[in-house]
Design a protein around this nucleic acid. Structure first.
Lengths: 140, 140
DNA sequence: GAAAATTCGTTCGTATACAAACAATTTCAG
DNA sequence: CTGAAATTGTTTGTATACGAACGAATTTTC
């Protein structure tokens, strides 16, 4: 394989980057009214699932490294959407939970979360949608 | 669809983000010796294809917005891998091309570009690889 | 040919993303 | 029980990513 054969457009990495750009753009448009980014929404949704969760564990659940997670937590916390309390059993940990405004915002936003997924998948048939999810899950 | 039905792990956006994280990690490991990021490599490859190309056009070819492109161009230029010259016909434009060291580095790195793609696709069968490329191209 | 619209590149601000190094704390091994 | 190892969270630095606003230059429109 020589340099002439390298077609950027056919590399999975480039396609993944472009697909994520489109996904983010769709999310941003749909969530403009909430002022939430994809990662912030993911964090809120996972905190809701867990009830109460430490910062590092939330990072693992949402695929964010600790340094990234800190920024996301700080911004959600400053907006009053989540609240933290020191863990009594492990003094390294802070446990985070949704505040009432956070829970209300999340409840209002879920429907748009589904809408974002639907819009991203719109170019695909139902069968193709299932396939792409299955193959991406394999790649991850 | 209620909030209980929202499973982050099954949303295409979340899967795309995770897949790209893995792709980037594989790239970073394989390209550590070159000191090139995925976007820098993409830019070099496209400049090589084009011979000479303006900054905004390169951004369109590599799916980077002008602000992002500027940072990539600046870093490649500072390393002496590319060189720019003012366009005589359009004085807003700068035309960029590979320097000899840039061309040499790119030539040495192409093989690893293919290797990165292969490693990302490793969990998939040949048929699945073709399918995922086709479906991602539809989504983009 | 002049006004309007578009394009090119820059700058600023915000938000991921992650490597690397670190202190504090907890867990594990012998 | 104690030293080693692992975990938790923080900080710093670098690199995308993009919205928004901008001046300069070019193209389009009438």
């Amino acid at each position: 394989m020589s340099a002439d054969d390298y077609r950027l457009e056919e590399q999975i990495g480039f396609l993944l980057r472009r697909a994520q750009q489109r996904a983010t753009a769709i999310f941003t448009t749909r969530f403009a009214g909430y002022g939430l980014t994809p990662t912030q929404f993911a964090a809120l949704a996972k905190i809701a699932d867990e009830g109460e969760v430490s910062q590092n564990r939330l990072g693992r659940l949402t695929a964010m490294d600790p340094a990234t997670m800190k920024g996301v937590i700080d911004r959600l916390s400053e907006r009053g959407l989540i609240a933290g309390r020191a863990d009594q059993k492990d003094r390294r940990r802070t446990q985070w939970r949704l505040t009432d405004p956070g829970a209300a915002l999340l409840a209002a936003a879920y429907g748009d979360g589904f809408a974002v997924t639907a819009e991203i998948m719109d170019p695909l048939s139902p069968r193709e949608r299932a396939t792409v999810l299955r193959l991406l899950a394999k790649i991850v």
